[in-house]
């Protein structure tokens, strides 16, 4: 575990906590894409199939359980919670998200490190995570007005990806047999998707004005 990996995990954890905080205390999920949250739940479900068979560390197991639990409870809140679900902007969140899963599945069947069910599902989760943020970004572009917590949530998610790239660079130079093209390419694409958002986030921060995306 290096400092970049830890920073990546912590910003990822913080992003989830910020979102849960918003939903749980303000009882609102305004501006949050249910489609993206459903994709994240599928990402964690398919990636952590080895949760009980492949033990790495207490830290890993606890973090996996947190990400699984939080992603499914966020989906539950938006779909089922009596108050929260009323704040969901259904009309702004029209991305046909399940169509994103097919290309990821086909790609995972053909491009993987080992052709086994667990490995293909793991690879599928890597591909799907790379594009899972798209419905959320489309929704941001539509609503344009972004509240502070939603802005921080997406910023923290992007920061998590950026730290993971630094972690891979660090591991490449410090560990043997550490070449993972699949995760690297998918991870870089995923991080690039946040580029535009980062630009406007830093602009608003620098000029001390409310974050608003251009039409």
């Amino acid at each position: 575990m290096n400092i970049f990996r830890l920073a990546g995990d912590m910003t990822h954890l913080a992003s989830v906590l910020v979102l849960l905080l918003k939903i749980h205390t303000i009882k609102s999920c305004a501006g949050i894409s249910l489609k993206t949250q459903e994709l994240f739940a599928i990402v964690f479900l398919t990636r952590y199939l080895d949760l009980f068979t492949n033990f790495i560390s207490i830290y890993n197991t606890i973090m996996k359980l947190i990400f699984l639990g939080s992603s499914f409870s966020i989906v539950w809140y938006i779909r089922r919670h009596r108050v929260v679900r009323r704040s969901y902007d259904k009309d702004q969140d029209t991305f046909r998200h399940f169509f994103l899963m097919w290309p990821c599945l086909i790609l995972a069947i053909f491009i993987n490190e080992k052709f086994t069910l667990k490995e293909v599902m793991w690879t599928f989760s890597i591909y799907l995570e790379a594009i899972a943020i798209l419905p959320q970004l489309v929704m941001l572009q539509r609503t344009r007005n972004i509240d502070n917590l939603t802005g921080q949530y997406i910023f923290l998610l992007g920061a998590y990806r950026a730290f993971y790239i630094l972690n891979w660079i660090y591991r490449y130079f410090t560990e043997e047999h550490y070449v993972h093209w699949i995760t690297w390419v998918a991870g870089v694409i995923q991080t690039l998707l946040y580029g535009d958002f980062f630009y406007y986030y830093f602009q608003s921060w620098k000029n001390n004005v409310k974050l608003e995306l251009p039409a």
Partner: peptide
């Protein structure tokens, strides 16, 4: 530690 596996990442 020289493990070289991306499976220990989240």
């Amino acid at each position: 530690e020289r493990t070289g596996s991306s499976k220990d990442e989240l």
